[in-house]
Design a protein around this nucleic acid. Structure first.
Lengths: 118, 118
DNA sequence: GTTGAATATTCTAATGCAAGAATATTTCGA
DNA sequence: TCGAAATATTCTTGCATTAGAATATTCAAC
């Protein structure tokens, strides 16, 4: 069993990588499938997949399989520490172009009916 | 120059280790010299020294030399993200015995006039 | 069945810490 | 000058993680 402080360290381990922060920033908006994430982030598929697996392993994300796609979402009942940092991420998203561009690309994908999950 | 998101990643890198969290929890109370930290944490000196150096390198701490002792304190003008997490650390300190014991040992040291910096 | 899309995994290097032991440096006091 | 305390650094070893390339798996559609 994991103590509270061990769990906090787990959370921080997930947050200390820019790639994972970018994923969390997108998932704050709601669940997303892997391919949408991959396109919004403009990162290679194995890289995104491994970052998602890392955060699942640490309990931040859960995934559900819907036919051919895997839908990722933030886990329920998150550590309050993580909740707080996701709020901070919102402020960060307003100030850093990297996060803004991710959100912009994601918005573009969602409105395109030719996309995979739509 | 470091971008805002890079700076946040730096902060999270410092937070993702229990030893460093314990140090930050003690420094929340105010500046401390290395030997007080070492005794309160009950950790070997090189380990504490390296954790302090790590956080200095990432801009979270500053140190001043006073004769034979080095006084460590939280840096001025911290990233708001770090401020927020230091507040979270306060809540954590109420719930996790590790942090409580550190504070208890520190309180014991400070009231003892035989100690090094007093 | 075969193809193709979506996702996961494996492999190989390379990197960044981490701990522990030992040693070096600085400074004060005897 | 010498010894002792406080601090920093070095060295070694090991572990966790990362990227990138390649491959494997799963499933729908044809």
């Amino acid at each position: 069993m994991e103590t509270l402080s061990e769990n906090c360290v787990s959370v921080y381990k997930c947050l200390c990588d820019l790639g994972r922060l970018r994923i969390l920033n997108l998932l704050r908006q709601g669940p997303l499938c892997g391919c949408h994430l991959q396109v919004a982030l403009e990162e290679p598929q194995p890289k995104v997949s491994k970052q998602l697996a890392y955060m699942k392993r640490h309990g931040l994300l859960v995934s559900t399989r819907r036919t051919n796609w895997t839908i990722f979402r933030l886990a329920e009942g998150l550590n309050p520490l993580l909740e707080e940092n996701l709020k901070c991420l919102q402020d960060l998203a307003f100030q850093d172009p990297v996060f803004q561009q991710d959100l912009a690309r994601l918005a573009g994908i969602n409105t395109d009916p030719a996309d995979c999950c739509d």
